[in-house]
């Protein structure tokens, strides 16, 4: 499907209420447009990364325009990560993995977490003989980021392992290939890698964050803004959040349509993987789940693992701003 057709489909879905959850928010949005001042800036920059669980921000372009952003830019970062791009001031708003965002706040990075977006996008795969996270003690484990994969480090800490000593970390862009080649004992896969590993029948799942507690009750991904952008542009921030949370609802109500949008937008080539991911991950939890509790939980785990120095309360007080979320929960 070409982009123009995709846009028509998306707008039709919003206007016709095909997704069920989309129509009503649109009406409310119109009312809020009248009450709210226009955004302080008409330009907004979002990250274009390889992980397709960021679908809500990828397909929010039309709604962002509707919110008053005439210049919506997606900053491509092949091999890079959104967090670094935000710290460097290259993007204004983007989705981040919660533990990475916690570590960033601890290290003083100028970011502000605004809302949780979805639950359950990551899956930890392991070789035969490894049945739980506890079995990773002394094993070679791969994941993105570095020097640790903070999401998997949180899981290890939760079951009593010391992620700094008990696990041999291998991080970098080629860890998936190393796992496929059998050179790693376990691998934390982020979309679309879980879907690909399943399709290629590589390893087996020891933690599926969409199913296994407590991970299935925690936001793995949050929407964050550059601290400077949020402080200077509160209305723009709120409008951007509204657009992205609406598309989050759209992902929940019409994963197929959202998957198509992601593919048509060129964010991923594989529709099946995108659909699988959007179906498995829970995009309908942003109203219900408390993002502060997710941040508190990850902060606790990373703090007890010695990977951050700040206490949870400090991370929350310095790195989060739920004001817009509270307002949007009432409006959207």
């Amino acid at each position: 499907m070409r982009p123009i057709e995709s846009r028509r489909y998306f707008l039709a879905a919003l206007a016709g209420g095909a997704a069920g959850l989309i129509g009503a928010p649109m009406l409310m949005t119109r009312r809020s447009f009248a009450e709210e001042p226009p955004p302080e800036t008409t330009t907004i920059r979002l990250a274009w990364a390889t992980n397709i669980c960021n679908a809500p921000q990828y397909i929010a372009q039309e709604l962002l325009r509707a919110e008053g952003f005439t210049d919506v830019k997606y900053v491509k970062m092949p091999g890079g990560n959104q967090l670094q791009a935000m710290v460097r001031g290259e993007v204004d708003v983007t989705m981040l993995y919660s533990p990475s965002a916690v570590v960033a706040v601890d290290s003083g990075s100028p970011i502000t977490m605004l809302t949780g977006v979805h639950v359950g996008c990551n899956v930890t795969f392991a070789r035969e003989g490894i049945r739980s996270i506890r079995d990773l003690k002394g094993k070679k484990v791969g994941g993105t980021g570095g020097p640790f994969n903070y999401l998997l480090a949180s899981m290890a800490s939760y079951v009593g392992l010391d992620p700094r000593k008990d696990i041999e970390w291998v991080t970098g862009p080629s860890t998936k290939e190393l796992f496929i080649e059998g050179k790693l004992d376990a691998f934390l896969a982020l979309p679309p890698d879980p879907q690909e590993l399943r399709a290629r029948k590589v390893g087996h799942e020891i933690v599926n964050s969409s199913l296994d507690r407590p991970w299935s009750q925690l936001f793995c991904c949050v929407l964050a803004g550059s601290r400077d952008f949020v402080r200077k542009n509160p209305t723009a921030t709120k409008r951007a959040m509204r657009a992205i949370l609406k598309t989050t609802d759209f992902c929940a109500s019409d994963p197929a349509g959202a998957a198509r949008q992601v593919v048509d937008g060129g964010f991923t080539p594989n529709y099946e993987y995108a659909l699988q991911m959007l179906t498995e991950a829970s995009y309908n939890k942003w109203r219900e789940y408390d993002p502060e509790d997710s941040i508190r939980f990850y902060s606790l785990r990373l703090h007890e693992a010695g990977l951050i120095k700040s206490i949870p309360n400090k991370i929350i007080s310095e790195g989060t701003n739920w004001r817009f979320l509270k307002e949007l929960k009432r409006e959207v």
């Binding site: 408390d290 509790d293 508190r296 939980f297 606790l300 949870p312 309360n313 400090k314």
Partner: peptide, 24 residues
């Protein structure tokens, strides 16, 4: 049931966070 479970988790998390803050 899911909500109840999450609420109890939240209680524990908050208490643990308070404990960490208290220790610090």
């Amino acid at each position: 049931a899911d909500r109840l479970e999450r609420l109890t988790n939240q209680l524990v998390n908050k208490a643990e966070a308070d404990m960490v803050a208290g220790i610090e």
